[in-house]
Each structure stands twice: as structure tokens, then as C-alpha cells.
Computed example of a mutant assay.
Amino acid sequence: MTDRRAEFRALHHSGRPLLLPNAWDHASAAVLAARGHPAIGTTSLGVAASAGLPDGAAATAAETLALARRLAQLPVLVSVDIEAGFSDDPAVVAGYVAELAGLGVVGINLEDGCPDGTLAEPECTADKVAAVKAAVPDLFVNARTDAWWLGVADPLPEALARARAYRAAGADGIFVPGTVDLAALRMLTERLDAPVNALYQPGGPGLTELGRVGVARVSTGSLLFRAALGAAVAAADAVRAGRPTVPAGLPSYAEVQHLVPVGD
């Protein structure tokens, strides 16, 4: 297991950004692995919405653990989005992450956004990071600050201060969703001694541009899940409207069936 975690860590230092696509169930993870992605993350929105639960409300601890158990069967490195840890108690968060690690998970995302749309006190998130690292020292902890996501008036200094606190607590990487401003990202990568993770945004800079300013990891977040929902609706609408075609390139029944492991 240590070798797999070291492999995941090394992907953040390859000289080009690691594209981490985010899955929401076994099939989406399996097809991404089959396309050659060495690592995948999970999307908390996709996991929550698939279960009929709200995202970011600490409601999907059981669903997230069950998904991690299923993804452990796949030949791919898995990092799991655990929102804010599903608890305010650092010891409970650490215990939960230890369960994930026991399943083979190599990394987690841990955020500082609260369900009420505010940011948690940085000491609270830092304490969770420290507890997780004490429980599973070689697990890659990607600490996410929602300074941009939640509309802080001056997000850059807030994000820097929080990132430094999380890094001091043991975080291995820093995630700053909500900005693709290259100048801001460059400042973060230059001032933080940890890999910086950006969230891909359609119409924003691509992997090459993000890599030029030092971004080490690019996540797709909920994009793939939302794209899948959109494609499903478009196909249903096409059938209802009597249009003769649906989107090209759909996997066949046999291809999807092949993604599911067959028991002995």
C-alpha cells in the first residue's frame, strides 16, 4: 500500500499537471480507469445526488465509504472527497479516513467550507488535517480552501493564510476551487511549498496553461457527472422527439458489462 501512495504522490511532481477526473460510481470510475487515467477522484456532488442526498451537508459518509469499497476493486489509484470530514471532531474524521485507507484509498480531499455557506475556522480544519496525518501518515491529504468558492471579498490572502495553516498541520496538497485566474494561481504555486490543485472550468485555461503557472493537479470536480446527466437528458429528448440519432460513441452493452468484475 505504501508503494501505491508513493506512486500517487509522485504523480504530483512529474513536471506536468496530473489530470484527476472525478467519478461518482463504479461504472464511471471503471471506464475512466480503462481509458488509461492512472488516478481518479470522487465527486461529492455526484455521490450525494446519486443517493438522493444533499452535497456538502455531511450526509453521505456511508455512501462514500461504500463507493470506496467498490472502487478498491479497480486497477487505479483512488482519492476520495470527504467534504469537511463528515464530523467536527478531528478524532472521528481521522477514524473515518483510516477506514478509507484500509480499503486502499491513497488520498482524500478535506474542505473548509460549511453547509451554511461560511468558512470554518482555519484551526478547526487544521486540527482535522493533523489528526488524519497522525492516523495515516503516508496518505495524501489535499486540503481544500473555499475562499474563492464562497465569495470571500479578498480571497487570495485568505487562501494563502489558510493554505499555510493546513500545510503546517501536515497537508500534502492545497486545493483552491473557484479560480482559474493564472496570476492568482502563479502566486499560490510560488508562495506555497506544496502541490496546488486547481478545478478545471470549461472555457478557462487548459492543462498546459495551468502547468505553466505551476499547478500540479487539475480536477474535474462535478463536471463529468453533470455532463453525463446532460447527455442522458439529451438522448431521452431525442427519442421523445423522434429524432433518429443519439450521441455518437456510446459504449455498448457488452462494453459496460465488461467493466464489472466477475466473481470466482
Rank of each mutant, 00 (worst) to 15 (best):
P155H: 12
V93A: 10
A228G: 02
Y200F: 15
G41T: 01
V233H: 13
V76T: 03
A236C: 14
P122V: 10
E121S: 12
L185H: 02
L229E: 14
G204Y: 07
A134E: 14
G249N: 08
G204V: 02
L71C: 05
S14P: 04
L207S: 09
A147W: 02
D264W: 11
D25Q: 10
K128D: 12
V129I: 11
T64I: 04
I108T: 12
N22I: 10
L192P: 01
E123W: 04
P75Y: 05
Y166D: 10
G113D: 03
V80T: 05
A98P: 06
A159R: 02
V218W: 01
G102I: 12
R9E: 09
D146G: 04
N22H: 14
L32E: 09
D89N: 15
L65H: 08
G85E: 08
G206M: 01
A234D: 15
N109E: 06
V92H: 14
V213Y: 00
L71V: 07
T208N: 10
A57N: 07
V256F: 11
P90N: 04
A58E: 11
L32Q: 14
A234S: 14
V80I: 15
Q201Y: 13
G95D: 15
A39I: 03
R9D: 12
Y200V: 03
P157V: 04
V136F: 09
V132A: 06
L11P: 02
L20D: 08
L65W: 07
A72D: 09
W149C: 07
P247S: 13
P115F: 00
P247E: 10
G214L: 03
S28Y: 08
T208F: 08
G95W: 07
A241S: 10
A248S: 14
G104C: 01
A94P: 12
A238V: 11
E83C: 00
G36F: 07
H26K: 05
L110S: 05
A72V: 04
R243S: 13
A84E: 12
T125V: 13
A194T: 02
V93Y: 05
V262E: 14
V233C: 09
G263D: 14
D193R: 00
V239M: 13
A135T: 12
P122D: 13
S28M: 09
G95Y: 09
E209H: 06
P261W: 06
R9P: 05
W148N: 03
A98W: 05
I82H: 01
D25G: 10
D138R: 07
R164G: 00
P54H: 00
R144M: 09
A165Q: 13
R186A: 13
A228F: 03
A57F: 10
S14R: 15
D89C: 13
L20I: 08
L182T: 13
P251M: 00
H26W: 10
L67E: 00
T220R: 12
A165K: 13
I108Q: 08
L223D: 11
H37Y: 15
L188F: 01
L20R: 05
A10E: 14
N109R: 07
A84V: 05
R240L: 13
F140M: 11
